[in-house]
C-alpha cells in the first residue's frame, strides 16, 4: 500500500477508533438507541475528502460517522450528538443518523436523500456551477424506488449529482445476491448514467482513480455513480453481525499496518488517545438542551 501523510492516516484512524469506542460504550450501557458503524469503510470518505469542496453538499445516510468526521474532523460534536450531551451538532434531536451542519445533511430513511440531493443539485447548477451534490448510499439502498426516480431526474436534467455507493456486500443481514438482481453498473447503464467501480482500498490510488471522474461532474454536469466495492468489518448496528463466519475479512488497515508498521503504531496510539479524551470529556458534559421547534 502507498504510504500516506500522517494527516490522512490520522483521519482514517480517528474514524476507526471512534467507531470502536462507540461499540464499547454501547456494551457498557453508556449509549442510548442505536448506531451503525463504518468499520472497514473509513477510506471511502477520507479518499474523497480533498476531492470535495466546501461549496459541495454532502448527503449522508445511517452509516455516516465517517462521512461526518472526514468533512469536519469534529468527534466532540458527533459524540455529543450520539450521547445527547451539550455541544451536540443537532442538540441531540437527530442523533447518529440525522445530522445537519452547513451543507452536510444525513437522513435515516434509505434512498430518501437521493431526490433531495437532485433538488439541491438543480439549485447548484443554476447558481453555483462547478459545485456538486454528493449522496452516499449503500448496496441495500438500491432496493428503493426513490433511487431510480432521482437518477432519472438527474440524468434528464443533467444535474451535478455524485452518487457514492458503498457496496459492502451485505444489506443489514442480507447478502447482495439475495437482494439485488443484476448489478449497480447495469442499473446505471439503463439510465445512461456514468458509472465507475473502485476495488482499491488504498487512499492514494483511489484518489488518483476517481479525481478526474469527479471533475467531469463539475465541468460536464450529469450524474455519476462511483461504486466502491468495500467491506463492512462490524455488525450492521450493534451485536447483529451476521457476516458469514470463516471468511477472512478484507481490511485496508491490516494491509496498511503490515506495510507501514511504525507510522501505524504511532498514529493509531495518538488517535486512540484523542478518542478516549473526547469520550471522557463529552460524557462529563450536561445533557443537551433543545430549544424546541
Amino acid at each position: 500500500m502507498n504510504g500516506l501523510a500522517d494527516e490522512d492516516l490520522a483521519l482514517l484512524l480517528l474514524i476507526r477508533c471512534f467507531e470502536r469506542k462507540l461499540l464499547a460504550l454501547f456494551e457498557q450501557g453508556e449509549l442510548n438507541g442505536t448506531t451503525h458503524t463504518c468499520l472497514g469503510q473509513e477510506y471511502v470518505p477520507v479518499s474523497l475528502r480533498p476531492l470535495l469542496r466546501d461549496s459541495d453538499w454532502i448527503f449522508s445516510n445511517h452509516r455516516g460517522h465517517g462521512h461526518y468526521l472526514a468533512r469536519f474532523d469534529d468527534p466532540e460534536g458527533l459524540l455529543a450528538e450520539i450521547m445527547g450531551r451539550k455541544g451536540a451538532v443537532c442538540d441531540g434531536v437527530g442523533g447518529s443518523q440525522h445530522l445537519r451542519r452547513g451543507r452536510y445533511l444525513s437522513t435515516g430513511v434509505q434512498g430518501q436523500s437521493m431526490p433531495v440531493a437532485a433538488g439541491v443539485a438543480l439549485h447548484l447548477s443554476r447558481h453555483e456551477p462547478g459545485a456538486l451534490a454528493c449522496a452516499y448510499i449503500g448496496d441495500g439502498t438500491w432496493g428503493e424506488g426513490a433511487v431510480y426516480e432521482a437518477l432519472n431526474l438527474a440524468a434528464l436534467w443533467r444535474l451535478p449529482l455524485l452518487v457514492v455507493v458503498e457496496h459492502n456486500g451485505i444489506a443489514q443481514s442480507t447478502p447482495t445476491p439475495a437482494q439485488m438482481a443484476g448489478t449497480v453498473a447495469g442499473r446505471a447503464a439503463a439510465f445512461g448514467v456514468r458509472h465507475h467501480a473502485i476495488d482499491a482500498l488504498d487512499v492514494t490510488a483511489v484518489r488518483r482513480e476517481v479525481a478526474p471522474l469527479i471533475e467531469t461532474v463539475r465541468t460536464d454536469p450529469g450524474p455519476l455513480v462511483l461504486e466502491f466495492r468495500t467491506h463492512r468489518l462490524g455488525p450492521h448496528s450493534k451485536g447483529d453481525d451476521v457476516r458469514p463466519p470463516g471468511v477472512r475479512p478484507v481490511d485496508w488497515y491490516a494491509a496498511y499496518r503490515a506495510a507501514h508498521p511504525a507510522q501505524s503504531a504511532r498514529v493509531e496510539a495518538a488517535a486512540r488517545d484523542r478518542v478516549e479524551r473526547v469520550a471522557a470529556e463529552v460524557a462529563a458534559r450536561p445533557p443537551a438542551v433543545w430549544g424546541g421547534a
Binding site: P115, G119, V120, A150
Partner: peptide, 8 residues
Amino acid sequence: GAAAGLAL
C-alpha cells in the same frame, strides 16, 4: 424530494 432540496 427535489422540491425539498430546492427549499433546503
